[in-house]
């Protein structure tokens, strides 16, 4: 068993990272920055997994981090491809510029 105070701090930090990422998704308007904010949220999740893993004294949580990293990489590949396809249509990466559909 790990020192409970350490685990507590790590979980609070992970929540802060997650919250910062969430805020960034809502406040930033550049597509790439928004993607980076999503990565920040995922890394908050990773920290929480590792912290809980140490609290439980099992390795499961640390293995799960690898799943998250692999999926995040796959997601980033598709996401950046979409961004490139968009950039060829419109010479901007501003999310507010993509407003063809309304109602």
């Amino acid at each position: 068993m790990e020192n409970p105070a350490f685990v507590h701090h790590a979980v609070v930090l992970s929540l802060i990272l997650f919250a910062l990422g969430t805020l960034g998704v809502f406040l930033r308007r550049n597509v790439i920055t928004v993607l980076m904010c999503v990565e920040l949220m995922l890394n908050g999740v990773n920290l929480a997994f590792v912290a809980f893993s140490r609290a439980q004294g099992t390795l499961d949580g640390q293995v799960l981090v690898f799943f998250v990293m692999v999926v995040a990489a796959a997601e980033a590949a598709v996401g950046l491809a979409i961004v490139i396809a968009l950039h060829r249509h419109r010479d901007t990466l501003d999310l507010d510029a993509f407003n063809l559909m309304k109602g």
């Binding site: 998704v25 597509v31 999503v38 949220m41 999740v45 999926v71 997601e75 598709v78 993509f98 559909m101």
Partner: peptide, 15 residues
């Protein structure tokens, strides 16, 4: 545009 919106909200919700 649909792909971008689906992707951003999808990634956000997975987190």
């Amino acid at each position: 545009e649909a792909a971008l919106k689906y992707f951003v909200t999808g990634a956000f919700s997975s987190a």
